[in-house]
Design a protein around this nucleic acid. Structure first.
Lengths: 119, 119
DNA sequence: TCTACGTTTCAACGAGAGTTGATATATAGG
DNA sequence: CCTATATATCAACTCTCGTTGAAACGTAGA
């Protein structure tokens, strides 16, 4: 992930409705949510949501697939992972000792066991 | 870190000049950089940079201290760490298995040895 | 084919972000 | 005290972003 991609991703997440959409999709898991359900969840008009979904998709944070009349959106976990790694990679430049605590905190969140991180 | 703080942080990072400032400060380490040096580094006019620095500071991503005539800015590693943890915590909700690869990738970046992460 | 449903696109509007130039504040030296 | 340097603040402008309503598209069932 280069700076341009990271910039688009951060800008996409720096908007209330879009951040809520991403969180909802991340929580929903790989099955994702239909656009209509998502609209109700984040309380945004359908046409407006469509605008935000396009932006999130363009930023590589979500993906979509059609299922009958519905369009199902789901989180692009790879994109989110890349974004986290982009932040951490920068953090490691020059003075790696300063971000070691962050890595330690993340390691404490053992995702394979389903434990959640309480920061 | 709650949603409001994360929103402010993402919005702050979703701007070209501000993202460059943060990266420069993160790379510079705890010693930080003077406002004037930062202005040259990111090629932004001083008064304009001051505006962005205030926003980054308000988002909890950087800190400042005065040293003589200069004001030295440095990265708020805690704030950045919180942001990463905010993303990962959400990722762990509901379907933890999907973000396990991200955690594994971060664990491979052993910051205590100075290794950088090549994503 | 016609209708209903779900979603997307488009143009227009209003609000807010980012930039610029001029001005103000704070510190150090002569 | 006066000047120079470094940074911050302010008002004004421009431009982009987010929202809205109307219309179009695409799909499924009668």
């Amino acid at each position: 992930m280069d700076e341009r991609q990271a910039l688009a991703a951060f800008a996409a997440l720096g908007q209330e409705h879009r951040l809520r959409v991403v969180r909802a999709l991340v929580t929903a898991g790989p099955d994702g949510l239909a656009a209509g359900v998502l609209a109700e969840t984040v309380k945004v008009a359908g046409n407006n949501l469509s605008f935000h979904l396009k932006e999130l998709s363009h930023a590589g944070l979500i993906t979509s697939r059609r299922e009958g009349k519905s369009v199902i959106y789901s989180a692009a976990y790879g994109g989110l992972s890349d974004l986290v790694q982009f932040l951490m990679r920068d953090c490691c430049q020059g003075h790696p000792e300063v971000c070691a605590p962050a890595v330690a905190a993340l390691a404490a969140c053992d995702c394979t066991t389903g434990d959640t991180l309480h920061a």
